[in-house]
Design a protein around this nucleic acid. Structure first.
Lengths: 153, 153
DNA sequence: GCCACAATTGAGAATGATTATCAATTTTGC
DNA sequence: GCAAAATTGATAATCATTCTCAATTGTGGC
């Protein structure tokens, strides 16, 4: 089933409604196909004349996350990123602290060990976050200034 | 060298000052020996009559993190947790979403694979976050209500 | 040990992403 | 097509954390 269909099913299962606004938001996300912030989406809509209230967008993103169609990447600070998860499986992220680029990675061994760790501690895993922060290939190459000691100019 | 000594060295290296307030905060943290929030510390101080301004506490915590004496655990929402890192090495966390308990875990294989992944993508790792969220042994046992579908009572 | 000067403190305001409120509007099962 | 329930948008609220700035406190050099 396609994304719109899955969202529709999720909504009806939960006695929620498929509205024009929700459809528009899902379409916009499918068109982006990448990582984005709530503000990115709001800007897209504004550019196209269609105006969506921030509250509505946040509410819809929450529903999409619940439906498993979108994944939310909580950043240490600043806005959260979102990414469509339609037709994709789980992966984790490397985040460039210089340019903000997000690189995805996926490792079955890590996932397996993680599950083992939980089993050993009798911990029932619900979700996890695995973020590597550092400098991407381009930024390290271009001599991105490293964290400067205090007092240095 | 002990924690106070290391902090003093960090401060002087960076042209910062060892003040009475900073000493008090470090002592309080060493006394706690566990995970805590900024508010936990503020409450401790208030209880003892010594009042520390939130701004000051946050500033000092930031210095302690920079000095490598304290680690900050960014939560998806709500206050950040901190933990003393004096005389300990790196570990990651399992966080119980029912009771808030934080369980530490440590796995060399995961760390090694992580480093490999970075090498392959030419990514210069600065720091990482690896959090497993779910239900701890006690909470799963006590029949903690699972995430309830919408509309259910 | 004192002094000048830079760093620190505290009080309070500001920030900023996200969430809550609520009246007006839209969907939908029947 | 209707009534009931959900949604929307405008706006206010939240809340952890950071900023501002005047008053205070450490410290290196003498």
């Amino acid at each position: 089933m396609n994304a719109a269909g899955r969202f529709a099913r999720y909504l009806s299962t939960n006695r929620l409604k498929m509205t024009r606004t929700r459809r528009a938001i899902l379409e916009e996300i499918l068109a982006i196909r990448g990582h984005f912030t709530a503000d990115d989406l709001l800007a897209h809509f504004r550019r196209r004349g269609r105006d969506v209230a921030p509250a509505t967008l946040y509410r819809t993103l929450a529903r999409l996350v619940e439906a498993g169609l979108v994944h939310r990447i909580d950043m240490a600070k600043g806005q959260a990123r979102y990414e469509p998860m339609f037709g994709r499986h789980h992966h984790d992220h490397m985040i460039c602290v210089s340019c903000g680029k997000i690189i995805e990675f996926e490792n079955r061994t890590i996932e397996r060990i993680q599950a083992d760790v939980c089993r050993r501690k009798r911990f029932t895993l619900v979700e996890h976050t695995h973020q590597l922060r550092g400098h991407c290939a381009q930024c390290s190459q271009n001599g991105t200034p490293a964290a400067r000691p205090r007092g240095a100019s």
